[in-house]
Computed example of a mutant assay.
Amino acid sequence: MERKNSSRIRLMEATFHLIEQQGYHGTGLNQIIKESGAPKGSLYYYFPNGKEELVAEAIKEYGQSLINRIQSVLIDATDPAEVTQLIFINLAKKMDESQCTKAGSFASVTLETANSSAILQKACKTMYDGCTNAYQEMLQKHGFSKARAVQIASFITSSMEGAIVLCRAKRNSQPLIQAAEELYFYLKMLLDNNTK
């Protein structure tokens, strides 16, 4: 995350960290303030609309950081199948490091707030769209039509998010490893057929 202001950033980092582990409804403002070490007054100074605004900003910041990392890996990819597999395997390693309690999944916030918060729904949608667009651009560079690249990229993004949820449920990274292997063969087949 960009260092705009230490209290603001600490609040957003603490928020995202807690929401990854506990979900939106399981995370309270007092806990965020305590975890961040930021003065209580700074919460309402930077986020006058409270928790919803704070979480939306944390998702935007973290989401953009994630999108930037994915884009930097994909931009010069010579083998879309290999680089996609590598992204999934690296994510599986992060899941293992946290005992599958966190790894950048936005699923819990999306599911908990989809019908109650247009602001949070928009923040999650923007993050998912950014990830999908990064894959789409890579696939278009490798000869896929825009329409086909969008379909495949959406499949990759949904496979990742679904695998993360399964990792959390099973408390192991196997679903991500399995998804990485299947996507590798799937993308190799598509790329091979696309060049014929």
Results as ranks from 00 to 15, higher is better:
119 I>Y: 10
51 K>Q: 10
48 P>S: 12
130 G>C: 04
133 N>K: 14
24 Y>F: 15
156 I>C: 14
196 K>G: 10
48 P>H: 12
9 I>Y: 02
41 G>K: 07
96 D>L: 03
148 R>H: 09
152 I>N: 00
66 L>I: 14
182 E>K: 08
188 K>Y: 04
170 K>P: 02
55 V>I: 12
147 A>R: 10
174 Q>V: 11
134 A>R: 05
181 E>L: 06
63 G>Q: 11
83 V>L: 13
88 F>Q: 00
90 N>V: 01
30 N>D: 15
132 T>A: 12
129 D>Y: 00
75 I>H: 10
159 S>D: 14
97 E>I: 03
41 G>C: 05
150 V>P: 00
40 K>R: 13
33 I>Y: 12
141 K>M: 05
126 T>P: 00
110 T>S: 13
42 S>G: 04
74 L>V: 08
150 V>H: 12
94 K>H: 11
153 A>V: 10
86 L>P: 00
25 H>L: 15
152 I>S: 02
147 A>I: 08
167 C>Y: 03
74 L>C: 12
171 R>D: 10
91 L>A: 08
153 A>C: 11
156 I>M: 14
125 K>Q: 00
96 D>V: 03
28 G>S: 14
1 M>A: 01
147 A>E: 10
144 F>G: 03
52 E>S: 09
181 E>I: 07
99 Q>W: 00
72 S>I: 13
156 I>H: 11
66 L>V: 15
153 A>S: 15
